[in-house]
Structure formats: C-alpha cells, structure tokens
C-alpha cells in the first residue's frame, strides 16, 4: 500500500492505495466521484477522461499513484459556485447527450480544447474529440454543443483557473 495525496477539484484527498489501483477507480470508488464514467477500460472510448494537472487523460490508463501530489479535475469540478460551465450549458442547450455515458469525458476534453482554442472550427472540435466514442452516435450535436459554448463565453479561461475555484484551496 502507498500513501498518496491527490487534489481533486481543489480539495486535497489523502488515501492509502494499492499501486495497481487505476485513477478512474480511485475517483469513483475511493472518493465517490462517479461523474467520470468507466467505459471500455482500454483507453479507446474516452468516457473516463479527467484532467491531470492541465491536460486531459484517460483515467483508466493512469494509476492513482501517478497522480500523487498532482491536481485532478473531474466533471464535478466544471461548475463553479453552482454556476454551470458554458460547456455544460452548451450540451444542455444543443441536446449534446442522449444516454449521457460519454458526456463527462466529452465535456472535459471540450473544456481543455476551448482553453487552448477559444473559437474552434467544427473540424478542430472533431479532431480534439476524435479519441472519444459516443455510442448513441450523437456527434453532430456534440460538435454543436461545443460551438455553442465557444459562442457563449467559454473561451478565454486561464488553464487551471477552475481547478481550485470551488473551494478556494489550491495547494501548490
């Protein structure tokens, strides 16, 4: 067992874990953050995408111990102070989800894209999300949702700005 401390959505969590524990299971089973979905288990589908520090990762292919001392941001950390992120509003406005299973991963990658590229073309959005699968095949509306967010002030956030905003505590 190994003692780790991971800052998830701005809050530090200390746990003793087996080194073989995957980050997705740490989030869901240890911390009860079930917003991130455990899908294909083979890093193909992208339902489990969360941020590790400033970049999206497929958390079924990262060990929890690799996040020791780092920051993780999950879909639960998208809304700030009870206010939905424009990406979330976009998915709601444009019917960007059907069954909703892929949605957390789609939104985390979309948020990352918009931080780097505030006004992405549909082609750019498709490229950014190309490693994520919607089994309902609702891709058109997913692209529209991300465009909606871009058109409604989703761009221009400083990367990492959100990570600690919910609680105000951001350990270095």
């Amino acid at each position: 067992m190994r003692q780790i401390t991971v800052t998830v959505n701005g809050e530090a969590h200390a746990r003793e874990v087996e080194p073989r524990l995957l980050l997705i299971h740490f989030l869901r089973d240890e911390l009860g953050l079930t917003g991130s979905h455990w899908g294909c288990d083979t890093s193909n589908c992208g339902a489990c995408v969360v941020w590790l520090d400033e970049v999206p990762v497929k958390s079924c292919t990262v060990l929890a111990v690799m996040a020791d001392g780092h920051r993780v941001r999950t879909v639960e950390g998208l809304a700030v102070g009870g206010r939905l992120d424009p990406v979330q509003v976009g998915f709601s406005e444009c019917h960007g989800l059907q069954c909703g299973f892929c949605t957390p991963g789609m939104m985390m990658t979309a948020r990352w894209l918009l931080d780097r590229s505030p006004d992405p073309s549909p082609a750019e959005i498709r490229e950014a999300l190309s490693g994520q699968v919607c089994r309902c095949t609702g891709y058109e509306n997913i692209v529209r949702s991300v465009r909606w967010a871009a058109e409604h002030g989703a761009g221009g956030h400083e990367p990492g700005e959100h990570s600690g905003a919910a609680t105000g505590s951001v350990p270095a």
Binding site: G46, V49, P56, V57, V62, T109, S130, G131, Q132
Partner: peptide, 9 residues
C-alpha cells in the same frame, strides 16, 4: 498516432 488525449500523455 493514437488520438489527441492519448498524445498528451
């Protein structure tokens, strides 16, 4: 190679 998310890691 792979996809944009995998390429980040």
């Amino acid at each position: 190679i792979a996809d944009p998310v995998v390429r980040e890691w």
